[in-house]
Amino acid sequence: MKRMNLNFIVGLFIIAGMAAVAYLSVTIAGVSGYSKDNYQLVAKFSNSSGLKKGAFIEIAGVKVGKVTNIVLDKEAFESVATFTFDDDVALSEDTIASIRTAGILGDKFVKISPGATDEMLSSGDEIIETESSISIEELVSKYMFNSDDKS
């Protein structure tokens, strides 16, 4: 009986602990065993400064995918980003991908502005129209050099 009781309490402790680990991993860290079907698109940016792997992709403020890879195109010296979209999001060919910042100090994310043509992008295609990150320093230096030229 004593033994029984001890085992019961230990079992209860293990179950409670496991439940806590599961809560932390599934609810808070968002790990799930199955992943939605998805497809990949690539996009080239002249500057993707600040965009990281795992950054969100949003359409009208709703999260529809993630940035899964960013590499340098060694010939054109462009940044090639791979986007992974949920399968139920269909995008047309004249879609625009722009790198934006959440708030002033927030993370960079990719904003997708859907196009209007009937031609749809399929897995592996490239989003042609892109807008690069806006760097405040570059804007400031451009402004400063321009004013230098004038004076």
Partner: peptide, 16 residues
């Protein structure tokens, strides 16, 4: 080795 991670998870959940 088994108990301390579980205790830590409980600590985290109650802290949250």
């Amino acid at each position: 080795l088994i108990a301390v991670p579980l205790l830590t998870a409980l600590f985290d959940v109650f802290g949250i």
